[in-house]
Simulated scan of single mutants.
Amino acid sequence: MVRVQRLLPAMFAAGCLVASGMPLVAQAQSNPGFTFNWGDGPSGSQQLRYHLDYGTPGFLGDRYWLRLGNQKVAINRINISYPDYFDGTFNAQSIELRTGGSKSNSFFQFRRDPGKLIELAEVTLDRDNRTIDIVPAEVIPAGTEVQVIMSNVRNPRSSGMFYFNARIGSPGDVPLMRYIGTWIISIARP
């Protein structure tokens, strides 16, 4: 019994030394974090939520989860514009729309419910005008949580903040696009 009482403090000290020398695994850019606005940037109510799987410069194969939120009107088209200094690339075949999905805790992102897949009629990438146009096969009803998932994204070569603007089109006589908000996407070095 005396040997066990002497051995326990030594094992505890050795365990603390080993644990302090091990690097911790962190998930990069899982949340937008704190955002400070000044000038002509979007207000707090216009900022849309997003999640990046990696969010590091030049990373090939990143996935962007861009939430549009609950819209009060039906949606028949989604248009996303991105800035000219964003030199990353997108893959039109890897863009999908989903309804619902988890309202996951922003700290624990281990399990993510991607929601129900929406069939798409067309996805158009216009690299000259820096826009992504997404047309669902059927109109998305009003009051539906919608998110755009872009897989196989190549992040820009350098870190920075990038404003991605979202506009939606509603069915009706006049095909006007309505601005609904901005994702302020932050790409940072690990």
Rank of each mutant, 00 (worst) to 15 (best):
M1P: 10
V4D: 07
Q5I: 12
Q5H: 12
R6A: 11
P9D: 04
A10C: 08
F12E: 06
G15A: 01
G15H: 00
L17S: 08
L17V: 12
G21A: 14
G21S: 11
L24W: 07
Q27S: 11
Q29W: 07
Q29K: 14
Q29F: 04
N31S: 14
P32I: 02
P32N: 04
G33E: 02
F34H: 11
N37Q: 13
G39W: 07
G39V: 08
G41S: 12
G44W: 10
G44R: 14
G44P: 09
S45Q: 12
Q46V: 02
Q46F: 03
Q46D: 12
Q47V: 04
Q47R: 15
R49A: 10
R49L: 12
L52V: 14
Y54T: 15
Y54D: 13
Y54G: 03
P57V: 14
P57H: 12
G58D: 12
F59Y: 15
G61W: 05
G61Q: 08
D62Q: 13
R63V: 15
R67H: 13
R67V: 09
Q71K: 07
Q71W: 02
Q71E: 05
A74H: 01
I75E: 03
N79T: 09
F86Q: 07
G88W: 03
G88C: 08
G88K: 10
F90G: 11
A92I: 10
S94F: 06
S94L: 05
S94Y: 08
E96Q: 13
L97R: 04
K103I: 15
N105Q: 12
S106T: 14
F108M: 08
Q109A: 12
F110D: 13
R111Y: 09
R112Q: 13
R112K: 14
D113P: 03
D113H: 10
P114V: 10
G115W: 05
L117W: 09
E119D: 14
E122C: 04
E122P: 04
T124D: 10
T124L: 09
T131V: 06
P136W: 08
A137T: 04
A137G: 03
P141T: 11
E145K: 15
V146R: 00
V146C: 01
V146D: 00
V148N: 01
M150I: 09
M150Y: 01
M150T: 09
N152E: 09
N152S: 14
N155S: 13
P156H: 06
P156L: 07
R157V: 08
R157I: 03
S158V: 05
S158H: 07
S158A: 04
S159W: 06
Y163M: 02
N165S: 01
N165F: 03
N165A: 02
R167I: 00
R167K: 01
I168W: 00
G169F: 00
S170V: 02
S170L: 01
S170P: 02
P171I: 02
P171N: 00
L176K: 06
L176Y: 02
R178H: 06
I180T: 01
G181D: 02
T182N: 01
W183P: 02
A188E: 07
A188K: 13
R189I: 05
P190M: 06
